[in-house]
Nucleic acid binder design. Structure first.
Lengths: 132, 132
DNA sequence: ATTAATGATACCATAATTGTATCATTTGTC
DNA sequence: GACAAATGATACAATTATGGTATCATTAAT
């Protein structure tokens, strides 16, 4: 049970690194080296971030990636959603069987409450807040 | 990202059911029928609960399972731990690379905070509280 | 023209979770 | 005592999610 998967993790580290470069272009090979992360995998991740409008890419020699938005406008929930899908904690519990006694709904309520809290907390974290 | 896996889910439903029977013996086949859950899988789950002292089993014809403790003394975190292992939310983030800039530690702090909250909430739920 | 980069995409590997099968043992019932 | 109905133990299979690799096409600087 982890809140953040490896892909998200790598993505965040990469974004932090890129953010430090303030508009300069960073290539995958450089990043992979610095972060000590498998390059092809990182590449796939950056491509996804590009596709989702978090990064901007430049092709050709000397190309690479830069941030597409200010760090203050990149929320870690955005990143999580890209790599982990919708953020829900109560995926499976009692969904088909429509809660035969509705007692167990107390559990669902609790979990929904937890979910709300978790999302609120996570939504308070931007890339900027991770930078220093 | 789910807080509760299917095994835990099944286990909780089964425990609720068994708890209602107040000391009577419930067999896997009966339970599987009532809960509409694959029987061999449910069986494995109940065996685990027995092994962990949550249920007591009786072999032989007319055998089955009963609760080994009062519902008030069975915490859903106990059950989660049995099927999902240690309850941690910040498994993978920045553990090997020992936080090169310690900036990202803010994330870790946040997640640790979330984890504490989640555990506190979950620890307030017993089987009894799920019963009505 | 060459080289160093990304785009797109298909494929593979690993691990966790979910689920099945089987043989041995126990116990109630006839 | 034989039989049937239950669990104990355990190995195996299937499915899914995640992590990771490979490759060919395209772009752009030198």
């Amino acid at each position: 049970m982890k809140l953040i998967t490896r892909s998200t993790d790598y993505a965040l580290r990469a974004l932090c690194f890129i953010a430090k470069y303030k508009g300069k272009i960073v290539s995958v090979s450089e990043l992979a080296l610095k972060l000590r992360v498998p390059q092809p995998f990182l590449r796939k991740i950056l491509q996804a971030l590009n596709g989702k409008g978090i990064l901007t890419s430049l092709k050709g020699q000397g190309g690479g990636f830069t941030l597409a938005k200010e760090p203050a406008k990149i929320f870690i929930t955005d990143i999580m959603r890209i790599f982990q899908g919708t953020l829900r904690l109560n995926e499976c519990f009692l969904q088909k069987l429509a809660c035969p006694h509705k007692k167990t709904c107390l559990l669902r309520k609790k979990i929904t409450g937890i979910e709300r809290y978790v999302l609120r907390e996570l939504n308070s974290i931007t890339l900027e807040s991770l930078l220093e």
